[in-house]
Write a protein that binds this DNA or RNA. Structure first.
Length: 946
RNA sequence: GGGGAAAUGGCGGAAUUGGCAGACGCGCAUGACUUAGGAUCAUGUCUCUUACGAGGUGAGAGUUCGAGUCUCUCUUUCCCCACCA
């Protein structure tokens, strides 16, 4: 290394990153302004909850989204990429309870810290549009939406089960309840009915099933479809012996004649009316037990299906048969009508219930083909013909649901004629329960008059402000204990009592991307002038865990807003500008959706294992005994080593991987062993009762979610300090499949450290030569243009890791040419410029710094993405792969313009082909190859079939 | 229980439409340079085989000239299930 180079300025992220972040901010480089002369791109990444510190999960979500947004900007779009905080929620109250800090103090302090941290990402957030959901200026409009929905009949009062802690006199979140007990106090939690506010979610159920205008991942569409859970069937009215009518929903009205008992949810109002004195105590006891289980537990098969006979009977309207009414917790009051007819012959759950309690099983659908076990043994849910069903006997039931099944169709018509039932569609989707009995949320802007009637507060007094002078103790609801909040007067001066429920925070996050458009507007939730230009969101990115709830709520909101005319003004302005407004009429907030995966904690070192057996090869052991040695078990480990020394046929080390019964074990010397554990081997795992199996060893090598309690949290601030934001960004983009996530690895980051150092070195060290080697310069130009296309294609598809790998490969190749002195200064200049432009979305700071050092005008982030030239990217030669039955046997360099016939001839003449053919004639010769844009053959292959 | 996804070298991952499996990195090995190296540079690095070759994408079957990719069965792991956000 020459002295000249040693004196050069090294790449020091800390010296450049803060400088450029400040410059970008002062120059307003990322301010997004409406400009009808430019195409727009509205990119949103799900806004964070201000939990305290920015964690790797935020870094994993945001910089990639930023990279994509920056790329779109360089492609010529006017890009809006805002940021905000979803600032209401439970953790703030938990902090208040455990640390005595007011939720507002805690939340605002967290946001202050996170803003600073967010800025270190070097993202193009337009901070002038920052939106914070817990500010009165924001939740004023959240309340306004509630009021509009209420006035339109979309909001209503209803009953719902909640987790109620009698000790704390408060409602608990599901996550606060563990094994039926409050996680904080360990006191029992029961399921209690409460009057709550709902939105009519199911009104849009069918429209929400339509994804035709959306570019969304298939799994999300499937999950939402299943979540909505549309099922076709019938509602049938049964009556009790005393004449009480009640409805059931069934998808199988064709099996009505096989209903040998009824099951109602323990919470069903009918229970009180039909329970006989003899059964009263058993029913009461069962209801108490059922109240302690959550819905997920109740639907779980881990629990045995239980139930109690009420003593009451219903009359089956189709045959006037007397059927017993049971209660069982597998029937949920929140689904359907909370009551079912049980047909044990043709439903699995009903079948096991009937067997357990000795209830009659009657076949009413008989399979027409094949041998089938009798229904007394196995329920039958397939196609067949109706039997034991009066005049319907012989009607074919084809196994389909709804009208597509002739048996169901015929029975429904008959039920209607008899006025005992009707065709019905049931949704698994329930109405949206938006009430929360919590403090730290937006108050619901409703008041109760003395006569018990309820009405919204007047628009001009919105927002109903959340009082700050409250004591958060964890007992009771602070708002219910706050007289000056509760007692109010209406616009006529009459005394009223305020609603003390606050809103589900999903309400806040259902419309924040409209508020970004005009966060300071005081007259409307959003400015139609801005909305007409920016809406809808073009690209929405975030975690897949929001697939069903948040995303469905936001879609519901958009459809409701559309139908309430809230986009009318916006649409009028769009039309003035000649923009297609149909996109808003679809009521879809996010046109394109992409999910990132989850960042996991660094792989934990697993426990040591000792495997004793016989060597099968130098690196493989067949074990007859396998034991786990806990980390703290040093003495035992010493014993293990002694055994190792004595017998030799021992492997002692850490499990790296397990596939079936094959363990990969790394010993302390770093050698990797394969340990096969036959079924006969004895496995000992401390803490797990014997006999143990090799499958249970999985717990000893698990990769874990990052969490403070597990002590595997990687702090992004430390990484930024150590490596710089660009390096952290680059590693996140390069080291993972973004859609999948994965475990953090602190070693792998070295790869991108070297990449950026190399780029720095290349750009800051111009070659001296005025002329270069033409073929090398052509090769460099070709690589640059292939990379321009490669990176762009990858970014379109959110394949960040492959995009970075192509940039690395380009750097590698250019470096070789430059080191060999084969690029002229001009060629170097051109290729470096293109490389920096391509890098700018990924590593914005170093790209800007080097751009400046090359004497280019500020800012690189206001330049266009390099233009791809197919002719310059074209290859002169390509590799022809010769295959035998699909397996490559030879490779031949050929001109890229080679014809199919020439390729076949060359392949057959190749030495490898001659050898495998050995004089015989091939069965077939298949040519595989596509012509690229320039007519050049891409990956030509010849497959010789023998 | 219901729903969704995933499984590729020692590790992260790549393979765009069914067409050269392992790109790009990490790590490791050997060498060079160095007072030094956790810097840098060079070379190598799926497995088996002395070689010729053969095999190989969680397991098993199938479709195909050709399967990591499509179909079926199975195993394992992760995520979501309505008051966490």
């Amino acid at each position: 290394m020459t002295d000249d180079k040693r004196d050069k300025v090294k790449y020091q992220p800390s010296a450049i990153e803060a400088k450029w972040q400040q410059k970008w901010e002062t120059d307003g480089v990322y301010r997004a302004k409406v400009d009808w002369n430019k195409p727009k791109h509205y990119a949103v990444t799900m806004l964070p909850y201000p939990s305290g510190d920015l964690h790797m999960g935020h870094w994993f979500a945001m910089p990639p989204s930023d990279t994509r947004a920056r790329y779109m900007r360089m492609k010529g779009y006017n890009v809006l990429f805002p940021m905000g905080f979803d600032a209401f929620g439970l953790p703030a109250e938990n902090a208040a309870i455990s640390r005595g800090i007011h939720p507002a103090t805690w939340t605002y302090a967290n946001m202050e810290r996170m803003r600073v941290q967010l800025r270190t990402m070097g993202a193009m957030f337009d901070w002038e549009r920052e939106t914070v959901s817990c500010e009165p200026a924001y939740y004023r409009w959240t309340q306004w939406f509630f009021k509009k929905f209420y006035q339109a009949g979309l909001a209503f009062h209803g009953e719902a089960l909640v987790n109620w802690s009698p000790t704390l006199q408060t409602v608990l979140a599901n996550e606060q309840v563990i094994d039926g007990k409050d996680e904080r106090t360990g006191q029992p939690v029961i399921q209690k009915m409460m009057t709550q506010w709902f939105f009519k979610y199911t009104r849009y159920a069918d429209e929400l099933l339509d994804f035709r205008s959306l570019d969304w991942p298939e799994p999300v569409r499937i999950m939402q479809t299943n979540w909505i859970g549309r099922s076709e069937g019938a509602r049938v009215t049964f009556t009790t012996e005393s004449g009480e009518a009640f409805e059931i929903f069934t998808t199988r009205p064709d099996t009505l004649w096989g209903a040998t008992f009824m099951v109602v949810a323990p919470e069903h109002p009918l229970v009180k009316k039909v329970t006989t004195p003899a059964q009263q105590s058993a029913v009461d006891a069962y209801i108490v037990v059922a109240a302690s289980a959550t819905e997920i537990e109740r639907q779980s098969d881990d629990r045995e299906k239980t139930g109690v006979f009420t003593g009451g009977y219903a009359i089956n309207p189709v045959n006037n048969e007397r059927v017993p009414i049971w209660i069982a917790d597998y029937v949920l009051i929140t689904y359907g009508t909370g009551a079912i007819m049980a047909v044990p012959a043709h439903d699995g759950r009903d079948h096991s219930f009937a067997l357990k309690y000795g209830i009659t099983i009657r076949e009413v659908i008989r399979p027409t083909d094949g041998e089938t076990a009798p229904v007394s043994e196995t329920p039958y849910a397939g196609a067949g013909v109706m039997v034991n069903s009066d005049h319907f006997d012989g009607t074919p039931s084809n196994g389909e649901k709804g009208r597509k099944n002739p048996a169901i169709s015929a029975v429904i018509d008959w039920l209607v004629e008899k006025s005992v039932g009707k065709e019905a569609i049931n949704y698994r989707l329930r109405d949206w329960l938006i009430s929360r009995q919590r403090y730290w949320g937006s108050p619901i802007p409703m008041v109760y008059s003395a006569d018990g009637s309820v009405k919204p507060v007047a628009d001009d007094v919105l927002p109903v402000e959340l009082p700050l002078d409250v004591q958060i103790t964890g007992v009771g609801n602070p708002l219910s204990n706050h007289p000056s909040f509760i007692d109010a007067t209406d616009e006529n001066g009459n005394p009223v009592r305020r609603e003390t429920d606050t809103m589900d925070t999903f309400m806040c996050s259902s419309w924040y991307f409209y508020r970004y458009l005009s966060p300071h507007l005081t007259t409307k939730p959003f400015d139609p002038e801005e909305a007409a230009y920016w809406l809808p969101v073009d690209t929405y990115t975030g975690g897949a865990e929001h697939s069903t709830m948040h995303l469905l709520y936001a879609r519901w909101f958009a459809k409701s807003m559309r139908d309430l005319g809230m986009f009318d003004e916006t649409i009028a302005i769009m039309k003035q500008h000649g923009r297609d407004s149909d996109v808003l009429m679809k009521g879809e907030p996010f046109l394109q959706l992409r999910n990132q995966g989850q960042m996991l904690g660094e792989e934990r070192h697993g426990d040591q294992i000792i495997a004793i057996g016989e060597y099968d090869s130098d690196t493989k052991l067949i074990a007859h005994t396998v034991g786990v040695i806990p980390k703290e078990g040093d003495q035992k480990m010493a014993t293990g080593e002694q055994i190792a020394a004595r017998t030799g046929a021992v492997v002692l080390g850490e499990i790296m991987k397990r596939t079936e019964n094959i363990l990969t074990v790394q010993d302390q010397a770093g050698r990797v062993w394969t340990v096969e554990v036959p079924e006969t081997a004895q496995v000992t795992i401390p803490g797990i009762p014997a006999p143990n199996t090799v499958n249970q060893l999985k717990h000893h090598l698990e990769i874990q979610r990052m969490s403070k309690s597990k002590g595997n949290v990687v702090n992004p601030d430390d990484l930024v300090k150590q490596y710089g934001a660009d390096t952290v960004r680059a590693y996140i983009l390069f080291g993972f499949d973004w859609a999948k996530g994965g475990p953090w690895n602190s070693q792998n980051i070295q790869g991108v450290v070297r990449w950026l150092n190399d780029v720095w070195e290349l750009v800051t060290t111009p070659p001296d030569n005025e002329t270069g080697d033409p073929s090398a310069e052509r090769a460099a130009e070709r690589s640059v243009h292939q990379t321009i296309k490669g990176v762009a294609d990858r970014l379109e598809d959110f394949n960040f890791n492959k995009a970075v790998s192509e940039l690395m490969a380009l750097k590698n190749e250019l470096r070789v040419h430059i080191r060999e002195g084969k690029l002229s200064r001009a060629a170097w200049h051109e290729s470096m410029k293109a490389m920096l432009l391509m890098m700018a979305p990924f590593t914005p700071h170093i790209a800007e710094e080097l751009w400046e050092r090359m004497g280019q005008p500020f800012s690189i982030h206001q330049q266009a993405y390099p233009v791809y030239d197919a002719a310059k990217a074209a290859d002169d030669v390509t590799t022809l792969v010769v295959m035998k039955n699909g397996k490559p046997i030879d490779r031949i360099e050929v001109p890229a313009t080679i014809s199919e016939d020439d390729a076949k001839a060359l392949a057959l003449a190749s030495p490898a082909a001659q050898r495998v053919l050995n004089g015989s004639a091939p069965k077939r010769i298949i040519f595989i190859g596509t012509r690229g844009e320039t007519g050049v053959l891409v990956e030509p292959k010849v497959n010789i079939v023998m």
